[in-house]
Write a protein that binds this DNA or RNA. Structure first.
Ligand SMILES: Nc1ccn([C@H]2C[C@H](O)[C@@H](COP(=O)(O)OP(=O)(O)OP(=O)(O)O)O2)c(=O)n1
Length: 705
DNA sequence: ATGATCGCCTAA
DNA sequence: TTAGTTAGGCGATCAT
């Protein structure tokens, strides 16, 4: 399917969902407004109340075909309404801008399941460049030219592998089996030929490994260096997109979040093509000790790549056609691998789902964080319900001292050689928000509460008041319903996965949706954010603390000898939403029925959809400290699943290999073989070896970023 | 010597 | 319009 560039030009839409809000809709009887959405709670009411409706031209709406045809996100279409227009003057004339929150997410009807890839056969171009000279980023230097560009073009949803593989080389190169070799005598010629190929390939998605921060900017900077800013050839070269005459532009951005860390990125805009770099994808979605393409491929593709050390690249380039052939083979491999990773890990399918559920363009899923997703969902729902979302004032030093979080029960540290059952709330915080209808749109002030019928609201554990869902169902609970049902689908797919690898892919998908659901709660507690509302966040955690305490008390009071059970149950540990219970039973089989019953009985005393689940038994169980334990995990009566380790050195990445290995081996001895003396002997012998310098130094290396 | 604080990473 | 949340262990470093 060809791409019609006219779609990328300006599209006429109404833009809405203003952030400058004259007055919030009053939805309660008795004239009570909902402070969660008014200026009372920090919302800024700015601007006048009367503005004319108008139309405007919005560029970039259809920038990405993947969002136009597949996710439906990326639209700015909003209902006709009254919005504020901000005018500014400059030498070119009057410039108009709408003061509006962009609703990214008009959902387009989805094609039947499984057919979308036929509807939009996305073309993926994976590429890699090779530079001569020093390792590093020196595009201006004479001696550091781009010497090769390898490409692999494939069509998503067709399991045919790459439909085109080629390599552009500077100077001659021997033919390569399965790939086209296009040689140039000058770097300029090579770059222009590559740019021509890019257009011919008409890729929807550009991928590679670290292309975002290296290959793409290097090509652009290099082009500028060899042609100079003024040369029309530079203008030609940088037209990579689908809009005629549009230059590819890059800019430096900074992104820092506690989850993803601090990152400096180069963001490049190519009209009509999404840059989807596999390196940041890997860093965000997989916890690894090394993110080199080599180790990632070893892990996920069971494939090693031949490495050409950068110090000999120059010699090879200056050598014969056969030498350059060796380089090219290596380069092609590097271009192919990211695309294969993408395929194997179902990256696009999973990200398209996430984009659809949350209503943000796919590109945001790599370049932005959780806030934009939640905000986008809020805007979407609010638009449906005719609610307005305020723009809060830039809150300088807002809520300095945070709020109280979850309880972690004091562990009774021990090595338990009896079964310990784990009872766990399913999606605790999201289900709390649903059960108690916690939302911006349902919160009322204490003063207002006195004015209405007490059957209509409930005070949370820490004193904030929310109306019941029969009065007004909250926005956030509705959003959570959707997220959790998406997660349920993912969990089902995980259960039905044909093999372990597919299972782990589905597990990643399921976990990503879980994090997004938990981020709805996190969003309300994010002091630096678009719409913080600490009363909601702290109510959620206070309910959580309450539920955990109740559960512990119920189990310990109910499962007693006085009530006719063989032993008194004891909660030995618990964290946020789980309790570890020693029922006093000695076999896994005896523990199951008790645990199942306990979970059911507890669930019954809590409102829907709060659900306490019996998930697993640990037997044996080594409880070291808060957030540090290990145990053999049983989800079925007859055989254990694997050893589950939490918080111990073996699952941390800030240790040297020796520490990890020694602890892993001793844990194996203690928990699987149940040989404590053996473990002690082993550790002693290892220490002796260490003190006598018998250890390999590589075992002691701590790798830091 | 010893307790407070910081950096890092993880559990939830 | 950059950035979900709190709790908490453990080793290193600082302040006394
Ligand atoms: N990244 C996370 C993980 C957890 N939590 C909070 C909200 C969760 O509801 C609660 C319990 O976390 P769990 O890891 O047990 O996960 P859930 O209960 O949400 O899901 P499930 O137990 O169904 O896997 O802790 C959070 O805010 N952010």
């Amino acid at each position: 399917m060809g791409y019609d560039p006219s779609h990328t030009n300006f599209l006429k839409v109404y833009v809405g969902m203003p952030t400058m809000i004259p007055k919030l809709k009053t939805i309660m009887e008795d004239g009570i407004t909902l402070p969660g959405l008014t200026d009372e709670n920090g919302g800024a009411v700015r601007g006048s109340t009367t503005f004319q409706p108008f139309e405007c031209n919005v560029p970039y709406v259809l920038r990405y075909m993947i969002d136009r045809d597949v996710t439906g996100a990326g639209w700015l279409s909003l209902p006709k309404g009254t919005y504020k227009l901000r005018k500014s003057e400059n030498e070119k004339g009057t410039h108009c801008q709408i003061e509006a929150d962009i609703c990214y997410n008009e959902i387009i009807p989805r094609k039947p399941e499984g057919e979308w890839s036929k509807v939009a056969p996305l073309r993926i171009l994976s590429f890699d460049i090779e530079c001569q000279g020093r390792k590093g980023y020196f595009p201006e230097a004479e001696q550091d030219p781009v010497i090769q560009i390898a490409n692999s073009l494939s069509v998503y949803g067709r399991n045919t592998g790459p439909i085109v593989q080629n390599v552009f080389t500077l100077k001659g190169c021997l033919p390569i089996v399965g790939a086209q070799v296009i040689s140039s005598e000058t770097e300029q010629d090579m770059l222009l030929k590559w740019r021509q190929f890019l257009h011919a390939s008409d890729a929807d998605i550009l991928t590679g490994y670290n292309v975002q921060n290296f290959d793409i900017p290097y090509l652009l900077d290099r082009a500028e260096a060899i042609w100079g800013k003024k040369d029309p050839k530079l203008r030609t070269f940088t037209q990579w997109g689908r809009v005629k005459n549009a230059q590819t532009k890059k800019r430096e951005t900074m992104f820092s979040s506690s989850a993803y860390g601090r990152r400096n990125n180069t963001e490049t805009t190519i009209e009509g093509r999404v840059i989807f770099d596999m390196l940041p994808y890997m860093q965000r979605n997989h916890k690894l000790s090394s993110y080199s393409l080599n180790s990632v491929c070893a892990e996920f593709l069971n494939q090693q790549k031949e490495d050409v050390h950068h110090s000999i690249i120059s010699d090879l380039q200056n050598g014969t056609d056969a030498d350059r052939h060796r380089l090219a083979v290596y380069c092609i491999k590097d271009a192919l691998l990211p695309q294969r990773l993408m395929d194997k890990l179902s990256v696009l399918i999973n990200y398209v789902e996430m984009a659809r559920v949350t209503g943000v363009p796919v590109s945001f899923l790599i370049s932005r964080g959780q806030q934009i997703k939640v905000f986008s969902m809020i805007l979407r729902k609010c638009r449906d319900e005719n609610l307005l979302v305020p723009t809060l004032k830039k809150s300088g030093a807002n809520n300095d001292d945070g709020y109280e979080g979850a309880t972690v029960l004091d562990p009774i540290k021990s090595y338990y050689e009896v079964p310990i059952a784990t009872l766990d709330f399913a999606s605790l915080y999201p289900s709390i928000m649903q059960a108690y209808n916690l939302c911006y749109s349902t919160m009322i002030s204490a003063k207002d509460a006195t004015k209405i019928d007490p059957t209509k609201y409930k005070k949370s554990e820490n004193g904030h008041t929310f109306v019941h869902s029969h009065v007004k169902k909250g926005i956030l609970p509705t959003i959570l319903e959707e997220l959790l049902s998406a997660r349920k689908r993912a969990k089902k797919d995980m259960k039905n996965a044909p093999n372990d690898f597919e299972k782990s892919v589905q597990n990643g998908r399921q976990l990503a949706l879980k994090v997004s659901a938990n981020s709805v709660y996190g969003f309300t507690g994010a002091g630096v954010g678009q719409l913080p509302c600490l009363p909601i966040a702290s109510s959620v955690t206070s309910y959580g603390r309450f539920l955990l305490e109740k559960t512990k008390a119920y189990v310990e009071e109910h499962y007693t000898q006085a009530n006719g059970y063989e032993h008194n149950a004891q909660v030995v540990y618990g964290d946020t939403d789980s309790v570890m219970v020693k029922f006093g039973t000695t076999t896994v089989a005896d523990t199951f029925p008790l645990a199942i019953e306990a979970a059911e009985k507890c669930s019954a005393i809590f409102p829907d959809p709060i659900l306490l689940e019996f998930e697993k038994v640990y037997y044996p169980y080594l409880l070291m400290n808060k957030k540090r334990y290990a145990g053999l995990m049983w989800t079925q009566k007859d055989k254990y699943d694997y050893m589950d380790t939490k918080g111990l050195e073996t699952v941390r990445r800030d240790n040297c290999a020796l520490v990890r290995d020694v602890i892993q081996t001793s844990l194996d001895k203690i928990i699987i073989e149940r040989d404590v003396p053996g473990a002690i002997d082993y550790v002693k012998s290892q220490i002796a070896d260490l003190l006598q310098n018998k250890m390999d130094i590589s075992q002691l290396v701590i790798t830091k970023i």
